[in-house]
Design a protein around this nucleic acid. Structure first.
Lengths: 329, 329
DNA sequence: ATGAAAGCGCTAACAC
DNA sequence: GTGTTAGCGCTTTCAT
């Protein structure tokens, strides 16, 4: 692959002039510009990002930290990030951490190594101390997950309000015994969604029954199955279940079916996230939709602005209750 | 962030010595090494990959081209690629093309720009002419998808044999009217799986009925629903269906349920890929499993070897029939 | 409008 | 065992 030197030689100009042409610098005569452009075509020249980046000390690469790409929740967010990134001449580097601190370190180092210009973290299990440390020197945005009272700018939804709406929807349908399948409350969103659940119950004068609240370790299908199994063993069976993730809800659905009961006739079911598969189950799943694409776009925009040195404000996006078969009697 | 110069100054040595320490070059005295290491720690120094890469003209970044990350089929492959990449000190850049030629171009240019050292393509819709062109100058591997009679090395499974096994499994269960939900036969794997389907039927003396073969445009859930709807309208209804992807099979399952029929009692169902959701449906889905993780590892190993200038051979991996509820009477 | 030259951070060839 | 220095490909003053 040719370099700028060869192009300059072929065009009979200096490398500076070639660089000016490459960067659409105005101060090049049309005639010279043409000569250079011809040489570029002739040599099939592509500028080396490496040289350019070193000189400009930027890589135009954005890091996206996520626990696992196999979680469909992230797909749409990433799409949004990518759209915004590309239209601003950035590219994204997807970093699966598997919540493994070693991997996390590799990616944090890429920022320090100037191999990436900034980072969007979506990992709930991220090492916040290290992330905060990074934030002191480099652009960092949190997307969906964030630290309460922290300093790193974030974009998210109002998790408490979303859970409140989900439970209110069930109450309006006449349910009084509403169970909650929550994830580990070490996660902020889990605490917030629980608060929303409780607020809805209290508002309608229902007691909060601790036996109706089940905590899973992870958000996997099998966790949902297990949670539902426990709930079905209760003396007083819930007539409705709110699971804080669609994958958990789908596990619960499986277990309800396996026990010979039916959704929504015997038990109504609400999930969270509107993953694509939530529309493929039988019955289809009522769920809370987050504006995932918009969230991704917003996160990318915030990060790019931050790279450009602007001051960034937190952003809370709207959610929506998607009513489908699992709550339609 | 400090640079190598400052470290050298602080340690009272030359930049060359610092570089030697960084690269574990043997010819440094323990005493000097200690001084340098102390300086590195004191200054919180991290070497700039940009400088290093420019000098070595390598980026240690591998590009992975895929149509869409929301397709769960790719998740495990990517995991495999990443595992192998990281253990060889490479990182991967996930590139979603959405089968959009413009995006493809961006990533191809990254290779030419020395921003990445090689590329693994998993995109069935990739522009083969451009990929072949790239292959003339840069390391390229195809994973899962490949060009028949092409020159680019690939790792894949024997799609024909896999389809043959799927259909044979149905025949052994006593099915005679077996339908095929195939994707567009512009894709090589679709043609190969059809051949396998036909070979199995022929081997057992069943005729090939064109009305039993449905082609979908894409591999989406809705395509499966639509395909099954058509098949259910036939005068002679199939007693078993082989869909060339789990997502299609899940769509078919939904439609079968919607029509009041049951799987596997009325219609047996086999999918392809063993995506994680195939175990979450009701009933669970019999499917063909590809060794996705291994395929990813293999692809990465092939690419890295290719970058090191080795000659690469094509590799065919084994598949497996996973028998689950959708074919268990 | 264009060229010469410095320098981004690093490695490696060569000298001592 | 360690230092000096050229140079990877590019952008950007500073001259002219």
């Amino acid at each position: 692959m040719a370099n700028i030197q060869q192009v300059a030689q072929k065009a009979g100009v200096s490398v500076a002039t070639v660089s000016r042409v490459l960067n659409n610098n105005a101060t090049v005569s049309p005639h010279t510009r043409l000569k250079v452009e011809t040489a570029i075509k002739d040599l099939n020249y592509e500028p080396s990002m490496l040289g350019r980046n070193l000189r400009n000390s930027e890589s135009r690469l954005l890091l996206v930290l996520l626990p696992s790409i196999s979680n469909p929740f992230y797909s749409e967010i990433i799409n949004g990030i990518q759209t915004t990134a590309i239209s601003n001449n950035y590219n994204i580097l997807l970093c699966e951490t598997d919540s493994n601190p070693d991997r996390e370190n590799i990616y944090f180092n890429m920022i320090k190594n100037k191999l990436a210009d900034g980072i969007i973290s979506m990992d709930p299990a991220v090492n916040m101390q290290k992330l905060n440390e990074l934030y002191e020197q480099y652009p960092v945005i949190q997307c969906s997950e964030y630290e309460e009272g922290g300093v790193i700018p974030y974009v998210t939804i109002d998790n408490e309000q979303a859970a409140y709406h989900a439970v209110k929807h069930l109450v309006k349908l006449g349910h009084e015994n509403i169970a909650l399948i929550n994830s580990d409350e070490k996660f902020l969103y889990a605490r917030q969604r629980r608060t929303g659940y409780e607020r809805a119950l209290q508002e309608f004068g229902f007691p909060i029954d601790e036996t109706f609240i089940y905590h899973t370790q992870e958000l996997k299908f099998s966790d949902g199955v297990q949670a539902m199994r426990k709930l079905l063993q209760l003396d007083r069976r819930p007539s409705a279940v709110f699971a804080v993730s669609d994958t958990l809800a789908i596990g619960a659905l499986k277990e309800i079916n396996a026990s010979g009961l039916h959704v929504p006739e015997d038990i109504a079911l609400v999930g969270f996230d509107k993953i694509s598969f939530s529309n493929m189950t039988n019955p289809t799943l009522t769920t809370i939709s987050q504006p995932m694409h918009e969230m991704g776009c917003t996160a990318a925009r915030m990060l790019i602005n931050s790279i450009h040195g602007e001051k960034i404000e937190n952003i809370i996006l709207d959610h929506e209750v998607i009513i489908r078969e699992s709550t339609m009697g």
